[in-house]
């Protein structure tokens, strides 16, 4: 079955939520996750970031819940990679 292996998200977060805390919160969803964050734009109160998540099987709803719970918002899903494991 095809699984979501990579996702690139455009996220708006408050400045006082650190990139490290947010990345750790997302990475804790699954042991296989590796999270990379790049800053796109920085304002006085907020920051737009590009979040790239690699994993064996990404549950986008779960990721979305974690990001929203932390206080950030997903603006868009900009890229994905879907793959299936050959048996």
């Amino acid at each position: 079955m095809a699984k979501l292996k990579f996702v690139k998200l455009d996220v708006l977060k408050p400045n006082n939520l650190t990139k490290i805390d947010l990345a750790k919160a997302v990475a804790e969803v699954d042991d296989s996750f590796s999270v990379k964050i790049e800053v796109v734009e920085k304002d006085r109160e907020t920051e737009t970031i590009r979040m790239m998540i690699d994993g064996n099987e990404i549950d986008i709803d779960e990721i979305s819940k974690v990001i929203e719970k932390a206080g950030a918002t997903i603006h868009s899903i900009d890229a994905i990679t879907v793959g299936s494991e050959k048996k």
Binding site: N16, D43, E45, A70, G71
Partner: peptide, 17 residues
């Protein structure tokens, strides 16, 4: 409240809240 205005989002149920 300042952040909620900037984020256009209710933050009361988030970790930040």
């Amino acid at each position: 409240h300042k952040l909620e205005k900037a984020m256009l989002k209710d933050l009361s149920k988030t970790k930040m809240g």
